[in-house]
Amino acid sequence: MRPALKVSALSRSKTALGDMAEDHEITKVQELIYTTRVESVMAPDVIVISPSATMAEARALMREKHISGMPVVEGDRMVGIVSMSDVMESLEKGSLGRPVFEMMTRDVKTAFSDSYVAEVIGRLGPRGFGRIPVIDREGRLVGILTTGTLIQSLLREMDIRYKKKEEEKLQSYRASHIYDDIVSDDTSLVLRYIVDDKDFSNAGKASSGIKKSLQRLRVLPSIVRRVAVAVYEAEMNLVIHTDVGGEITVDIRRDRLLISAVDHGPGIENISEVLKPGYSTAPQWIRDMGFGAGMGLANIKRCSDSMRILSELGGGTRLDIIFLFRDHPVGGGPVGGKRA
């Protein structure tokens, strides 16, 4: 949960960076620091020292762990921070035997673990602090942020995002060429999805998978949208109006898409009635969730090139929806094969 404050900070620093922002890579890093939270770039295992330890012990610990400072913690409360420069000062004063709490910095600037990196990055570095202890909203020390941990995690994050994007490109490339690679007079790709009944919070998974697959097949975005809306209404009908769930199959040919939603549920008594916009038998709890307005079948009809319902009371329902690709066959180029 972030206050709007963050947004104005964002637009300010974006203008401040001015023409630098034109550089694509810089923009990517910027985006990353505004969307990555401190908790994912901090080092979670913090080396700490007790306030009653001596400065000599602090020096030994820093040497051993190759660090240049650490939070001073009493119980689960952070009471200060002690750094190499405090050790140097003790050396000069000959006070290495004194307890840490006499030499430490008490006024410690901390960062919240759920803050965005952008909010704290300015405080790190040569003109800021060497390290910023990270606390949760209850004030417990949960990690530490240094320039080193920050750069490492940002690089890792960029690498993951880059790989994801490349992978999506590759998947889309492979999928969209499947029709070229298969040798047949007419190829059709069939996707099958099982839809559970009454699993309300999971509903929509099939539609989501169908949308993604069509995008990878590089179906025209305007058609993908129409299909997504129609198939989602159909999927919700399986979830809401059947007690057994059902199956959605998507048959994709280069020139058209046929979607069938089939169930062995209660069936429909009067088909012309359920087609009327506003007619619904959905229970109240479904209406409270924003569904059951009786617009689903009307929506499906509006989105598709043709729609057909077959149903029998007690014998289940079959809904067939057809979309034509017309001038934009899947896989690009002219529709091949003998049936073109």
Binding site: F200, A203, G204, S207, K211, A228, Y232
Partner: peptide, 10 residues
């Protein structure tokens, strides 16, 4: 509810 997000996606 989560279906609001699903609806938005679609």
């Amino acid at each position: 509810n989560p279906q609001v997000v699903r609806t938005a996606e679609m």
